[in-house]
Design a binder for these strands. Structure first.
Lengths: 117, 117
DNA sequence: AATATAGTTGAAGAATTGCTCAACTGTTTA
DNA sequence: TAAACAGTTGAGCAATTCTTCAACTATATT
């Protein structure tokens, strides 16, 4: 049994498909892109990111500011950390989080621009 | 029974929280932002969007190009349509989809920029 | 009118995700 | 060294989401 047919329909415009196929990237790149945007696809996470745009903050302050439990904030911060969107530094018992780089702000700004039309 | 306490911990830096509270937006705005990014948070959808960046395409061609069923593509296109990220025109039996505006390309570009570091 | 094709739709199931809870670690302070 | 507090973690649950399947609509062709 060889490769399955590409889809459940005929290609209507072979030339179009061929042209675009030459311009798109490999699948893995889109997975990476989607993974990045997943981080911005939750309102708690974008609220955290936008708050950190103002200044670095600790977990407790973020929790109080956003009216979310410490645990929920910490879980989300872990995701953001694993995606390299935030960084942190410890000072005694307190862990301060901040944005990892300026791309985060750029991405948020583009989004706000779009929803404001 | 009045309002519940804001979170399960004390505010450590009241001044910080007060300062940032004055700068962040209302919750609904972050919901809108997250909803927008949800559209970019799936690899099939970003592949569709990136393909449409090249040129308008019909459902069958998209399905063939991306190796996904027509149905799956159509479902995703519906989401993208409802989010005003794509528009379409019918020509006989065929429905051609294209990007709704240039914001979509801008947002995708920022994303690629970031994952390419 | 009958058939074929492009596309849409809703239900169903699997997978993912976000929060809560309770237990835990690590650091500071009494 | 014991208590207090900031933060982390994993399990469990509810909610959401993505794909498949089958039935459907709409347009064109014969």
């Amino acid at each position: 049994m060889g490769k399955q047919p590409l889809c459940d329909c005929d290609i209507i415009h072979e030339d179009v498909v061929a042209e675009v196929r030459g311009k798109i990237f490999e699948k893995g790149r889109y997975n990476d892109l989607a993974s990045l945007y997943k981080m911005f696809a939750d309102s708690t996470r974008v609220r955290i990111l936008h708050a950190l745009e103002c200044r670095e903050m600790c977990v407790c302050d973020l929790a109080a500011l956003l009216d979310v439990t410490k645990s929920a904030v910490s879980h989300q911060l872990k995701s953001l950390r694993l995606s390299n969107l935030v960084k942190f530094r410890r000072e005694g018992k307190i862990v301060f989080y901040s944005l990892a780089d300026s791309h985060v702000k750029d991405i948020l700004d583009r989004g706000f621009e779009h929803i404001d039309e």
